[in-house]
Design a protein around this nucleic acid. Structure first.
Length: 540
RNA sequence: GCGCCCGUAGCUCAGCGGAUCAGAGUAUUGGCCUCCGAAGCCAAGGGUCGUGGGUUCGAAUCCCGCCGGGCGCGCCA
Protein backbone atom coordinates (compact mmCIF):
# COMPACT_ATOMS: atom_id res chain seq x y z
CA UNK A 1 0.00 0.00 0.00
CA UNK A 2 1.35 3.40 -0.96
CA UNK A 3 1.89 5.63 2.04
CA UNK A 4 0.10 8.90 2.52
CA UNK A 5 2.32 11.69 1.16
CA UNK A 6 0.94 14.19 3.62
CA UNK A 7 1.97 12.01 6.52
CA UNK A 8 5.40 11.64 4.98
CA UNK A 9 5.85 15.39 4.59
CA UNK A 10 4.71 15.98 8.12
CA UNK A 11 7.21 13.45 9.39
CA UNK A 12 9.98 15.00 7.31
CA UNK A 13 9.13 18.44 8.65
CA UNK A 14 9.14 17.10 12.17
CA UNK A 15 12.57 15.62 11.65
CA UNK A 16 13.87 18.86 10.18
CA UNK A 17 12.51 20.84 13.09
CA UNK A 18 14.24 18.56 15.56
CA UNK A 19 17.49 19.33 13.82
CA UNK A 20 17.11 23.06 13.18
CA UNK A 21 15.04 24.13 16.17
CA UNK A 22 15.14 21.36 18.79
CA UNK A 23 13.23 23.46 21.32
CA UNK A 24 10.21 23.48 19.05
CA UNK A 25 10.45 19.95 17.76
CA UNK A 26 6.91 19.19 18.86
CA UNK A 27 5.27 22.39 17.69
CA UNK A 28 1.98 21.79 15.90
CA UNK A 29 2.49 21.58 12.15
CA UNK A 30 -0.25 22.85 9.90
CA UNK A 31 -0.14 21.49 6.38
CA UNK A 32 -2.59 23.11 4.02
CA UNK A 33 -3.63 22.49 0.46
CA UNK A 34 -3.22 25.79 -1.37
CA UNK A 35 -5.90 26.86 -3.80
CA UNK A 36 -3.42 28.25 -6.24
CA UNK A 37 -1.56 25.60 -8.17
CA UNK A 38 1.73 27.50 -8.17
CA UNK A 39 1.82 27.20 -4.40
CA UNK A 40 2.35 23.49 -4.71
CA UNK A 41 0.33 20.57 -3.45
CA UNK A 42 0.89 21.16 0.22
CA UNK A 43 2.13 24.12 2.16
CA UNK A 44 3.04 25.02 5.70
CA UNK A 45 3.34 28.26 7.61
CA UNK A 46 5.37 26.67 10.40
CA UNK A 47 8.36 28.93 9.78
CA UNK A 48 6.16 31.99 10.19
CA UNK A 49 4.69 30.59 13.37
CA UNK A 50 8.05 29.86 14.96
CA UNK A 51 10.17 32.71 13.64
CA UNK A 52 8.85 35.12 16.21
CA UNK A 53 9.50 32.85 19.17
CA UNK A 54 12.96 32.13 17.84
CA UNK A 55 13.66 35.81 17.21
CA UNK A 56 14.66 35.04 13.65
CA UNK A 57 13.71 36.37 10.29
CA UNK A 58 10.88 34.16 8.95
CA UNK A 59 12.13 33.89 5.41
CA UNK A 60 15.67 32.98 6.48
CA UNK A 61 14.42 30.41 8.97
CA UNK A 62 12.15 28.92 6.32
CA UNK A 63 15.11 28.56 3.95
CA UNK A 64 17.13 26.75 6.57
CA UNK A 65 14.23 24.46 7.41
CA UNK A 66 13.48 23.75 3.78
CA UNK A 67 17.10 22.87 3.12
CA UNK A 68 17.10 20.14 5.74
CA UNK A 69 13.91 18.41 4.62
CA UNK A 70 14.21 15.21 2.68
CA UNK A 71 11.80 12.60 1.40
CA UNK A 72 11.08 10.61 -1.74
CA UNK A 73 7.43 11.59 -2.17
CA UNK A 74 8.06 15.22 -3.04
CA UNK A 75 10.33 17.57 -4.96
CA UNK A 76 12.68 19.95 -3.20
CA UNK A 77 10.48 22.32 -1.15
CA UNK A 78 10.32 25.98 -2.09
CA UNK A 79 10.12 28.98 0.16
CA UNK A 80 7.59 31.57 -0.92
CA UNK A 81 6.03 34.81 0.23
CA UNK A 82 6.83 35.87 3.77
CA UNK A 83 8.08 32.40 4.67
CA UNK A 84 5.75 29.65 3.53
CA UNK A 85 7.27 26.34 2.58
CA UNK A 86 5.59 24.81 -0.44
CA UNK A 87 5.77 21.16 -1.41
CA UNK A 88 5.18 19.67 -4.80
CA UNK A 89 4.51 15.95 -4.93
CA UNK A 90 6.20 13.60 -7.35
CA UNK A 91 3.82 11.96 -9.79
CA UNK A 92 4.08 8.55 -8.15
CA UNK A 93 3.18 9.91 -4.75
CA UNK A 94 0.42 12.06 -6.13
CA UNK A 95 -1.47 9.19 -7.72
CA UNK A 96 -0.72 6.64 -5.03
CA UNK A 97 -4.05 7.57 -3.56
CA UNK A 98 -5.83 5.74 -6.37
CA UNK A 99 -4.50 2.40 -5.24
CA UNK A 100 -5.40 3.21 -1.65
CA UNK A 101 -8.99 4.04 -2.56
CA UNK A 102 -9.45 0.95 -4.70
CA UNK A 103 -7.87 -1.30 -2.11
CA UNK A 104 -9.99 0.03 0.77
CA UNK A 105 -13.18 0.39 -1.24
CA UNK A 106 -16.21 1.27 0.86
CA UNK A 107 -13.89 1.73 3.84
CA UNK A 108 -11.79 4.42 2.20
CA UNK A 109 -11.75 7.41 4.49
CA UNK A 110 -12.60 5.34 7.55
CA UNK A 111 -10.23 5.15 10.50
CA UNK A 112 -9.88 3.40 13.84
CA UNK A 113 -8.90 6.48 15.79
CA UNK A 114 -12.02 6.20 17.92
CA UNK A 115 -10.70 2.98 19.35
CA UNK A 116 -14.16 1.50 19.80
CA UNK A 117 -15.13 4.13 22.37
CA UNK A 118 -18.91 4.01 22.88
CA UNK A 119 -20.79 7.17 21.98
CA UNK A 120 -24.48 7.77 22.20
CA UNK A 121 -26.21 10.15 19.85
CA UNK A 122 -29.69 11.11 20.89
CA UNK A 123 -31.86 12.82 18.31
CA UNK A 124 -35.39 13.46 17.10
CA UNK A 125 -36.94 12.51 20.45
CA UNK A 126 -40.28 13.95 19.39
CA UNK A 127 -43.30 13.81 21.61
CA UNK A 128 -45.69 11.17 20.32
CA UNK A 129 -48.41 13.77 19.94
CA UNK A 130 -48.28 14.29 16.19
CA UNK A 131 -46.37 13.68 12.97
CA UNK A 132 -42.70 14.66 12.76
CA UNK A 133 -42.19 18.23 11.58
CA UNK A 134 -39.40 19.65 9.44
CA UNK A 135 -37.34 20.52 12.51
CA UNK A 136 -37.36 16.84 13.44
CA UNK A 137 -36.32 16.18 9.87
CA UNK A 138 -33.28 18.36 10.27
CA UNK A 139 -32.51 16.59 13.49
CA UNK A 140 -32.92 13.18 11.92
CA UNK A 141 -30.65 14.09 9.01
CA UNK A 142 -28.04 15.70 11.26
CA UNK A 143 -28.14 13.13 14.03
CA UNK A 144 -27.94 10.14 11.74
CA UNK A 145 -25.07 11.70 9.78
CA UNK A 146 -23.16 12.59 12.94
CA UNK A 147 -23.65 9.04 14.18
CA UNK A 148 -22.37 7.60 10.92
CA UNK A 149 -19.42 9.98 10.92
CA UNK A 150 -18.45 8.83 14.39
CA UNK A 151 -18.77 5.20 13.33
CA UNK A 152 -16.47 5.93 10.42
CA UNK A 153 -13.82 7.02 12.90
CA UNK A 154 -14.01 3.83 14.89
CA UNK A 155 -16.53 4.72 17.56
CA UNK A 156 -19.22 2.34 18.70
CA UNK A 157 -22.32 4.43 18.25
CA UNK A 158 -25.77 4.02 19.73
CA UNK A 159 -28.57 5.98 18.08
CA UNK A 160 -31.20 6.73 20.66
CA UNK A 161 -34.69 8.16 20.60
CA UNK A 162 -36.30 9.40 23.79
CA UNK A 163 -40.07 9.15 23.84
CA UNK A 164 -41.78 11.71 26.03
CA UNK A 165 -44.74 9.44 26.49
CA UNK A 166 -45.61 10.67 29.97
CA UNK A 167 -46.82 14.03 31.12
CA UNK A 168 -49.33 16.71 30.33
CA UNK A 169 -48.95 16.80 26.56
CA UNK A 170 -50.03 13.17 26.36
CA UNK A 171 -53.14 13.95 28.35
CA UNK A 172 -53.94 16.69 25.89
CA UNK A 173 -53.53 14.22 23.08
CA UNK A 174 -55.87 11.72 24.73
CA UNK A 175 -58.51 14.37 25.33
CA UNK A 176 -58.27 15.58 21.75
CA UNK A 177 -58.77 12.09 20.37
CA UNK A 178 -61.57 11.44 22.80
CA UNK A 179 -63.37 14.62 21.76
CA UNK A 180 -63.00 13.68 18.10
CA UNK A 181 -64.29 10.19 18.79
CA UNK A 182 -67.38 11.78 20.28
CA UNK A 183 -67.88 13.84 17.16
CA UNK A 184 -66.66 17.14 18.61
CA UNK A 185 -64.57 19.22 16.22
CA UNK A 186 -61.83 21.75 17.03
CA UNK A 187 -63.28 24.97 18.34
CA UNK A 188 -66.70 23.49 19.13
CA UNK A 189 -68.17 23.25 22.57
CA UNK A 190 -66.47 20.52 24.56
CA UNK A 191 -63.19 20.70 22.58
CA UNK A 192 -60.28 20.58 25.03
CA UNK A 193 -58.37 23.77 25.65
CA UNK A 194 -55.18 23.82 23.54
CA UNK A 195 -56.17 20.48 22.02
CA UNK A 196 -54.41 19.13 18.94
CA UNK A 197 -56.36 20.17 15.86
CA UNK A 198 -54.59 18.36 13.02
CA UNK A 199 -56.33 16.00 10.67
CA UNK A 200 -54.39 13.07 12.11
CA UNK A 201 -56.41 13.36 15.33
CA UNK A 202 -59.49 12.57 13.31
CA UNK A 203 -57.73 9.59 11.74
CA UNK A 204 -56.83 8.20 15.13
CA UNK A 205 -60.37 8.72 16.43
CA UNK A 206 -61.78 6.93 13.42
CA UNK A 207 -59.47 3.96 13.93
CA UNK A 208 -60.25 3.76 17.62
CA UNK A 209 -62.96 1.17 18.18
CA UNK A 210 -63.00 1.10 21.97
CA UNK A 211 -64.93 3.03 24.57
CA UNK A 212 -64.45 6.77 24.09
CA UNK A 213 -64.93 7.36 27.79
CA UNK A 214 -62.00 5.12 28.70
CA UNK A 215 -59.30 7.80 28.68
CA UNK A 216 -56.37 5.54 29.62
CA UNK A 217 -57.30 3.24 26.75
CA UNK A 218 -57.67 6.17 24.34
CA UNK A 219 -54.26 7.41 25.44
CA UNK A 220 -52.63 4.02 24.96
CA UNK A 221 -54.17 3.67 21.54
CA UNK A 222 -53.24 7.18 20.40
CA UNK A 223 -49.63 6.93 21.55
CA UNK A 224 -49.18 3.56 19.87
CA UNK A 225 -50.77 4.90 16.69
CA UNK A 226 -48.50 7.93 16.53
CA UNK A 227 -45.42 5.89 17.31
CA UNK A 228 -46.24 3.70 14.33
CA UNK A 229 -46.67 6.81 12.20
CA UNK A 230 -43.38 8.28 13.33
CA UNK A 231 -41.63 4.97 12.77
CA UNK A 232 -43.00 4.91 9.25
CA UNK A 233 -41.80 8.47 8.62
CA UNK A 234 -38.35 7.64 9.94
CA UNK A 235 -38.21 4.48 7.85
CA UNK A 236 -39.17 6.51 4.78
CA UNK A 237 -36.33 8.84 5.69
CA UNK A 238 -33.92 5.95 6.07
CA UNK A 239 -33.15 6.54 9.73
CA UNK A 240 -32.92 3.68 12.20
CA UNK A 241 -32.53 3.81 15.95
CA UNK A 242 -30.87 1.28 18.21
CA UNK A 243 -32.73 2.24 21.35
CA UNK A 244 -36.12 3.79 22.00
CA UNK A 245 -36.15 4.98 25.57
CA UNK A 246 -39.56 5.55 27.10
CA UNK A 247 -39.99 8.38 29.54
CA UNK A 248 -42.80 6.40 31.18
CA UNK A 249 -40.32 3.68 32.10
CA UNK A 250 -38.41 6.18 34.24
CA UNK A 251 -41.50 6.46 36.38
CA UNK A 252 -42.46 2.80 36.46
CA UNK A 253 -38.93 1.81 37.39
CA UNK A 254 -38.74 4.41 40.14
CA UNK A 255 -35.85 6.29 38.57
CA UNK A 256 -37.56 9.66 38.77
CA UNK A 257 -38.30 9.16 42.43
CA UNK A 258 -34.75 8.05 43.06
CA UNK A 259 -33.27 11.11 41.41
CA UNK A 260 -35.47 13.42 43.40
CA UNK A 261 -34.35 11.76 46.60
CA UNK A 262 -30.75 12.01 45.59
CA UNK A 263 -31.15 15.70 44.81
CA UNK A 264 -32.67 16.32 48.23
CA UNK A 265 -29.90 14.30 49.84
CA UNK A 266 -27.32 16.44 48.06
CA UNK A 267 -28.47 19.42 50.12
CA UNK A 268 -28.86 21.53 47.00
CA UNK A 269 -32.64 21.83 47.27
CA UNK A 270 -34.89 24.11 49.28
CA UNK A 271 -38.59 24.74 49.79
CA UNK A 272 -40.16 27.98 48.65
CA UNK A 273 -43.75 28.95 47.86
CA UNK A 274 -44.85 25.40 48.43
CA UNK A 275 -42.51 24.04 45.77
CA UNK A 276 -39.15 22.32 45.91
CA UNK A 277 -36.29 24.11 44.13
CA UNK A 278 -32.82 23.07 43.06
CA UNK A 279 -29.93 25.50 43.33
CA UNK A 280 -28.91 25.25 39.70
CA UNK A 281 -27.40 28.73 40.00
CA UNK A 282 -24.52 27.00 41.80
CA UNK A 283 -23.69 25.46 38.45
CA UNK A 284 -24.00 28.40 36.11
CA UNK A 285 -27.75 28.61 35.57
CA UNK A 286 -29.24 32.10 35.64
CA UNK A 287 -31.98 31.12 38.09
CA UNK A 288 -32.88 28.25 40.35
CA UNK A 289 -35.33 25.70 39.02
CA UNK A 290 -38.41 24.05 40.44
CA UNK A 291 -38.18 20.29 40.64
CA UNK A 292 -41.43 19.53 42.48
CA UNK A 293 -44.40 21.78 41.91
CA UNK A 294 -46.67 22.95 44.70
CA UNK A 295 -49.27 20.44 43.52
CA UNK A 296 -46.84 17.64 44.26
CA UNK A 297 -46.03 16.68 40.65
CA UNK A 298 -42.57 16.93 39.13
CA UNK A 299 -41.41 19.31 36.45
CA UNK A 300 -40.07 17.72 33.26
CA UNK A 301 -36.64 18.65 34.53
CA UNK A 302 -36.57 15.71 36.95
CA UNK A 303 -37.20 12.92 34.42
CA UNK A 304 -34.73 14.69 32.11
CA UNK A 305 -32.01 14.41 34.72
CA UNK A 306 -33.04 10.86 35.57
CA UNK A 307 -32.84 9.97 31.89
CA UNK A 308 -29.33 11.36 31.61
CA UNK A 309 -28.28 9.49 34.71
CA UNK A 310 -29.24 6.29 32.91
CA UNK A 311 -27.09 7.31 29.96
CA UNK A 312 -24.13 7.75 32.26
CA UNK A 313 -24.86 4.50 34.08
CA UNK A 314 -25.13 2.68 30.79
CA UNK A 315 -21.48 3.54 30.29
CA UNK A 316 -21.58 6.37 27.78
CA UNK A 317 -18.65 8.59 28.66
CA UNK A 318 -19.55 10.51 25.58
CA UNK A 319 -23.07 11.57 24.68
CA UNK A 320 -24.16 13.97 21.96
CA UNK A 321 -27.67 15.36 22.12
CA UNK A 322 -29.02 16.87 18.93
CA UNK A 323 -31.69 19.44 19.65
CA UNK A 324 -33.27 22.60 18.30
CA UNK A 325 -31.96 25.90 19.63
CA UNK A 326 -35.42 26.48 21.07
CA UNK A 327 -34.37 24.03 23.78
CA UNK A 328 -30.98 25.49 24.47
CA UNK A 329 -31.90 26.56 27.96
CA UNK A 330 -32.08 22.91 28.98
CA UNK A 331 -28.37 22.48 28.34
CA UNK A 332 -27.25 24.34 31.44
CA UNK A 333 -30.10 22.94 33.47
CA UNK A 334 -29.50 19.27 32.71
CA UNK A 335 -25.78 19.62 33.32
CA UNK A 336 -26.47 21.47 36.56
CA UNK A 337 -28.82 18.73 37.73
CA UNK A 338 -26.23 16.08 36.99
CA UNK A 339 -23.54 18.04 38.81
CA UNK A 340 -25.73 18.41 41.89
CA UNK A 341 -26.01 14.61 42.10
CA UNK A 342 -22.24 14.35 42.57
CA UNK A 343 -21.87 11.20 40.48
CA UNK A 344 -18.48 12.21 39.11
CA UNK A 345 -19.96 13.27 35.79
CA UNK A 346 -17.77 15.87 34.02
CA UNK A 347 -19.26 19.40 34.01
CA UNK A 348 -19.41 19.58 30.23
CA UNK A 349 -21.28 16.28 29.89
CA UNK A 350 -23.33 15.67 27.79
CA UNK A 351 -22.36 17.47 24.58
CA UNK A 352 -24.96 19.23 22.51
CA UNK A 353 -25.39 20.00 18.85
CA UNK A 354 -28.03 22.68 18.58
CA UNK A 355 -29.63 23.46 15.26
CA UNK A 356 -31.64 26.49 14.23
CA UNK A 357 -35.16 26.12 13.03
CA UNK A 358 -36.24 25.32 9.51
CA UNK A 359 -38.47 27.54 7.45
CA UNK A 360 -40.19 26.09 4.41
CA UNK A 361 -40.92 28.27 1.40
CA UNK A 362 -42.81 27.57 -1.77
CA UNK A 363 -43.66 29.99 -4.51
CA UNK A 364 -41.74 32.62 -2.56
CA UNK A 365 -44.08 32.30 0.41
CA UNK A 366 -43.48 30.63 3.72
CA UNK A 367 -45.49 27.43 4.13
CA UNK A 368 -46.78 27.13 7.66
CA UNK A 369 -49.80 24.95 7.34
CA UNK A 370 -50.13 21.35 6.36
CA UNK A 371 -53.31 19.38 6.18
CA UNK A 372 -51.80 16.41 7.88
CA UNK A 373 -50.51 18.18 10.95
CA UNK A 374 -52.65 21.28 11.09
CA UNK A 375 -50.09 23.85 12.08
CA UNK A 376 -46.78 22.77 10.60
CA UNK A 377 -45.10 21.10 7.63
CA UNK A 378 -44.14 17.50 8.24
CA UNK A 379 -41.14 15.44 7.25
CA UNK A 380 -43.49 13.29 5.23
CA UNK A 381 -44.74 16.33 3.29
CA UNK A 382 -41.17 17.21 2.41
CA UNK A 383 -40.30 13.68 1.30
CA UNK A 384 -43.47 13.53 -0.80
CA UNK A 385 -42.63 16.85 -2.44
CA UNK A 386 -38.95 16.50 -3.25
CA UNK A 387 -37.83 12.97 -2.49
CA UNK A 388 -35.83 11.50 0.32
CA UNK A 389 -32.36 12.10 -1.08
CA UNK A 390 -32.98 15.80 -1.66
CA UNK A 391 -34.42 16.26 1.83
CA UNK A 392 -31.47 14.50 3.38
CA UNK A 393 -28.88 16.36 1.38
CA UNK A 394 -30.49 19.76 1.85
CA UNK A 395 -30.98 19.45 5.58
CA UNK A 396 -27.38 18.44 6.10
CA UNK A 397 -25.82 20.95 3.73
CA UNK A 398 -25.61 23.83 6.14
CA UNK A 399 -24.03 24.43 9.51
CA UNK A 400 -26.39 23.32 12.26
CA UNK A 401 -26.52 26.75 13.84
CA UNK A 402 -27.48 28.64 10.74
CA UNK A 403 -31.15 29.17 10.11
CA UNK A 404 -32.30 27.06 7.23
CA UNK A 405 -34.75 28.07 4.53
CA UNK A 406 -35.97 25.01 2.68
CA UNK A 407 -36.98 26.20 -0.76
CA UNK A 408 -39.33 23.52 -2.07
CA UNK A 409 -39.31 24.95 -5.58
CA UNK A 410 -35.55 24.82 -5.74
CA UNK A 411 -35.43 21.25 -4.48
CA UNK A 412 -38.21 20.07 -6.74
CA UNK A 413 -39.40 21.99 -9.76
CA UNK A 414 -36.03 22.93 -11.15
CA UNK A 415 -34.12 19.82 -10.36
CA UNK A 416 -31.10 20.86 -12.39
CA UNK A 417 -30.34 23.47 -9.75
CA UNK A 418 -30.46 20.92 -7.04
CA UNK A 419 -27.03 20.16 -5.55
CA UNK A 420 -27.94 16.60 -4.70
CA UNK A 421 -28.58 15.79 -8.36
CA UNK A 422 -25.29 17.36 -9.27
CA UNK A 423 -23.38 14.95 -7.07
CA UNK A 424 -25.53 11.96 -7.91
CA UNK A 425 -25.21 12.78 -11.58
CA UNK A 426 -21.45 12.58 -11.34
CA UNK A 427 -21.79 9.12 -9.85
CA UNK A 428 -24.30 7.97 -12.47
CA UNK A 429 -22.13 9.35 -15.24
CA UNK A 430 -19.16 7.39 -13.96
CA UNK A 431 -21.24 4.23 -13.81
CA UNK A 432 -22.23 4.85 -17.38
CA UNK A 433 -18.60 5.10 -18.46
CA UNK A 434 -17.82 1.79 -16.78
CA UNK A 435 -20.84 0.16 -18.37
CA UNK A 436 -19.65 1.32 -21.76
CA UNK A 437 -16.13 0.14 -21.09
CA UNK A 438 -17.40 -3.27 -20.05
CA UNK A 439 -14.24 -4.36 -18.23
CA UNK A 440 -13.78 -5.40 -14.65
CA UNK A 441 -13.08 -2.51 -12.27
CA UNK A 442 -11.40 -4.92 -9.88
CA UNK A 443 -8.53 -5.25 -12.34
CA UNK A 444 -7.75 -1.55 -12.12
CA UNK A 445 -6.16 -1.59 -8.69
CA UNK A 446 -2.72 -2.53 -9.93
CA UNK A 447 -2.70 -0.69 -13.22
CA UNK A 448 0.23 1.54 -14.31
CA UNK A 449 -0.51 5.20 -13.64
CA UNK A 450 2.46 6.87 -15.31
CA UNK A 451 0.24 8.08 -18.14
CA UNK A 452 -1.63 10.45 -15.82
CA UNK A 453 -0.01 13.82 -16.43
CA UNK A 454 -2.81 16.36 -16.62
CA UNK A 455 -3.47 19.13 -14.12
CA UNK A 456 -7.08 18.06 -13.78
CA UNK A 457 -5.98 14.55 -12.97
CA UNK A 458 -3.60 15.86 -10.35
CA UNK A 459 -6.38 17.95 -8.84
CA UNK A 460 -8.75 15.02 -8.68
CA UNK A 461 -6.12 12.88 -6.99
CA UNK A 462 -5.43 15.64 -4.50
CA UNK A 463 -9.13 15.85 -3.65
CA UNK A 464 -9.33 12.09 -3.18
CA UNK A 465 -6.31 12.31 -0.92
CA UNK A 466 -8.11 14.90 1.15
CA UNK A 467 -11.19 12.78 1.85
CA UNK A 468 -9.98 10.95 4.98
CA UNK A 469 -8.96 14.15 6.74
CA UNK A 470 -12.19 15.87 5.70
CA UNK A 471 -14.10 12.98 7.17
CA UNK A 472 -12.07 13.00 10.36
CA UNK A 473 -12.63 16.72 10.80
CA UNK A 474 -16.35 16.45 10.10
CA UNK A 475 -16.61 13.71 12.72
CA UNK A 476 -14.53 15.64 15.23
CA UNK A 477 -16.65 18.75 14.84
CA UNK A 478 -19.96 16.91 14.42
CA UNK A 479 -20.31 18.86 11.17
CA UNK A 480 -21.85 16.79 8.38
CA UNK A 481 -22.09 19.85 6.12
CA UNK A 482 -18.35 19.44 5.52
CA UNK A 483 -19.18 16.22 3.70
CA UNK A 484 -21.84 17.88 1.56
CA UNK A 485 -19.41 20.60 0.53
CA UNK A 486 -16.66 18.11 -0.15
CA UNK A 487 -18.92 16.04 -2.38
CA UNK A 488 -19.94 19.13 -4.31
CA UNK A 489 -16.31 19.96 -4.92
CA UNK A 490 -15.31 16.46 -5.94
CA UNK A 491 -18.28 16.18 -8.31
CA UNK A 492 -17.42 19.57 -9.83
CA UNK A 493 -13.82 18.56 -10.41
CA UNK A 494 -14.94 15.34 -12.02
CA UNK A 495 -17.48 17.02 -14.32
CA UNK A 496 -14.81 19.46 -15.39
CA UNK A 497 -12.38 16.62 -16.11
CA UNK A 498 -15.03 14.66 -17.97
CA UNK A 499 -15.73 17.56 -20.28
CA UNK A 500 -12.08 18.26 -20.93
CA UNK A 501 -10.73 14.75 -21.47
CA UNK A 502 -11.99 11.57 -22.97
CA UNK A 503 -11.72 8.61 -20.64
CA UNK A 504 -12.22 5.67 -23.04
CA UNK A 505 -9.31 6.51 -25.32
CA UNK A 506 -7.66 4.02 -27.66
CA UNK A 507 -4.27 4.09 -25.93
CA UNK A 508 -4.61 1.19 -23.55
CA UNK A 509 -2.25 2.37 -20.85
CA UNK A 510 -3.78 5.82 -20.70
CA UNK A 511 -7.30 4.40 -20.74
CA UNK A 512 -6.57 2.03 -17.87
CA UNK A 513 -4.95 4.76 -15.84
CA UNK A 514 -7.90 7.09 -16.36
CA UNK A 515 -10.36 4.36 -15.54
CA UNK A 516 -8.48 3.63 -12.33
CA UNK A 517 -8.71 7.30 -11.38
CA UNK A 518 -12.41 7.31 -12.25
CA UNK A 519 -13.04 4.18 -10.23
CA UNK A 520 -11.46 5.89 -7.24
CA UNK A 521 -13.60 9.00 -7.75
CA UNK A 522 -16.75 6.92 -8.04
CA UNK A 523 -15.90 5.01 -4.89
CA UNK A 524 -15.22 8.17 -2.92
CA UNK A 525 -18.45 9.81 -4.09
CA UNK A 526 -20.38 6.73 -3.02
CA UNK A 527 -18.62 6.64 0.34
CA UNK A 528 -19.38 10.29 1.02
CA UNK A 529 -23.01 10.02 -0.02
CA UNK A 530 -23.55 7.02 2.21
CA UNK A 531 -22.25 9.00 5.18
CA UNK A 532 -25.09 11.47 4.87
CA UNK A 533 -27.71 8.90 4.01
CA UNK A 534 -28.07 9.76 0.33
CA UNK A 535 -28.16 7.10 -2.37
CA UNK A 536 -25.56 6.81 -5.13
CA UNK A 537 -27.62 5.84 -8.18
CA UNK A 538 -26.10 4.07 -11.18
CA UNK A 539 -28.69 5.58 -13.48
CA UNK A 540 -30.85 8.64 -13.20
C1' G B 1 -33.82 44.10 29.88
C1' C B 2 -30.63 39.40 30.39
C1' G B 3 -28.41 34.82 28.04
C1' C B 4 -27.01 31.92 23.60
C1' C B 5 -26.57 31.99 18.22
C1' C B 6 -26.22 34.54 13.45
C1' G B 7 -24.86 39.18 10.03
C1' U B 8 -19.50 37.45 3.95
C1' A B 9 -21.43 38.87 -3.97
C1' G B 10 -28.62 40.56 -6.01
C1' C B 11 -30.20 35.59 -3.52
C1' U B 12 -28.74 30.88 -0.58
C1' C B 13 -24.38 29.87 1.97
C1' A B 14 -18.80 27.92 2.96
C1' G B 15 -14.35 29.80 5.18
C1' C B 16 -13.67 31.84 11.53
C1' G B 17 -7.32 27.23 16.41
C1' G B 18 -4.77 34.85 11.99
C1' A B 19 -0.77 34.74 6.58
C1' U B 20 -1.14 31.10 0.17
C1' C B 21 -8.59 33.48 2.40
C1' A B 22 -12.17 37.19 -0.83
C1' G B 23 -14.68 31.70 -1.96
C1' A B 24 -18.86 28.19 -3.92
C1' G B 25 -23.70 27.64 -5.76
C1' U B 26 -27.49 30.42 -7.90
C1' A B 27 -29.12 34.62 -10.77
C1' U B 28 -27.37 37.83 -15.18
C1' U B 29 -24.40 37.85 -19.89
C1' G B 30 -21.58 35.23 -23.83
C1' G B 31 -19.70 30.57 -25.67
C1' C B 32 -19.49 24.49 -25.90
C1' C B 33 -23.35 18.40 -27.89
C1' U B 34 -21.43 14.50 -36.00
C1' C B 35 -17.41 13.08 -29.59
C1' C B 36 -17.82 8.15 -22.93
C1' G B 37 -25.03 10.94 -20.10
C1' A B 38 -25.73 19.06 -21.76
C1' A B 39 -29.30 16.94 -14.75
C1' G B 40 -22.79 18.78 -17.67
C1' C B 41 -18.57 22.22 -19.10
C1' C B 42 -15.85 27.07 -20.26
C1' A B 43 -15.70 32.49 -19.68
C1' A B 44 -17.26 37.53 -17.84
C1' G B 45 -19.27 41.05 -14.46
C1' G B 46 -20.53 41.28 -9.09
C1' G B 47 -18.42 42.00 -2.07
C1' U B 48 -15.42 48.73 2.49
C1' C B 49 -16.59 40.12 4.99
C1' G B 50 -23.08 44.59 9.50
C1' U B 51 -20.45 48.85 11.95
C1' G B 52 -16.72 51.46 15.22
C1' G B 53 -12.53 50.57 18.07
C1' G B 54 -8.50 47.19 20.03
C1' U B 55 -4.52 43.14 19.89
C1' U B 56 -0.81 41.71 15.90
C1' C B 57 4.53 42.51 11.35
C1' G B 58 -0.35 40.55 9.43
C1' A B 59 -7.70 40.05 11.24
C1' A B 60 -13.70 37.81 7.58
C1' U B 61 -11.13 34.86 11.53
C1' C B 62 -9.18 36.84 18.33
C1' C B 63 -11.12 40.91 22.20
C1' C B 64 -14.68 45.13 23.45
C1' G B 65 -18.79 48.56 22.11
C1' C B 66 -22.86 49.50 18.85
C1' C B 67 -26.67 48.27 15.01
C1' G B 68 -29.78 44.41 12.74
C1' G B 69 -32.08 39.33 12.89
C1' G B 70 -33.27 34.34 15.32
C1' C B 71 -34.12 31.52 19.75
C1' G B 72 -34.71 31.29 24.93
C1' C B 73 -35.77 33.77 29.64
C1' G B 74 -42.87 29.08 33.27
C1' C B 75 -44.48 25.62 39.52
C1' C B 76 -45.10 24.01 29.95
C1' A B 77 -42.27 20.08 27.46
Amino acid sequence: MASDPKAQIEAALRAALAKVAPAHASAPILLERPKQADHGDLSTNIALQLAKQLGRRPREFAEQLAASIAGDAFERPEVAGPGFINFRLKAGARFGVIARVLEQGARYGWSRSGGGEPVQVEFVSANPTGPLHVGHGRQAALGDAIATLLESQGHKVTREYYYNDAGAQIDKLAWSVQARAKGIRPGERGWPEEGYAGEYIEDIAREYKGDANDVPEVRRFAVAYLRREQDADLAAFGVKFDVYYLESSLYTEGKVEAVLKALVASGKTYEKDGALWLRTTDYGDDKDRVVRKSDGSYTYFVPDVAYHVTKWQRGFKRVINVQGTDHHSTVTRVRAGLQALGLGIPPGWPEYVLHSLVKVTRGGEEVKISKRAGSYVTVRDLIDWVGRDAVRFFLVSRKADSEFVFDVDLARERSDENPVYYVQYAHARLCSVFAQWGGKPATLGSVRLDALRGDREALLASLLDEFPETLAKAAREAAPHDIAFYLRELAAQFHSYYNAERILVDDEELRSARLALCAAVRQTLANGLSLIGVSAPEKM
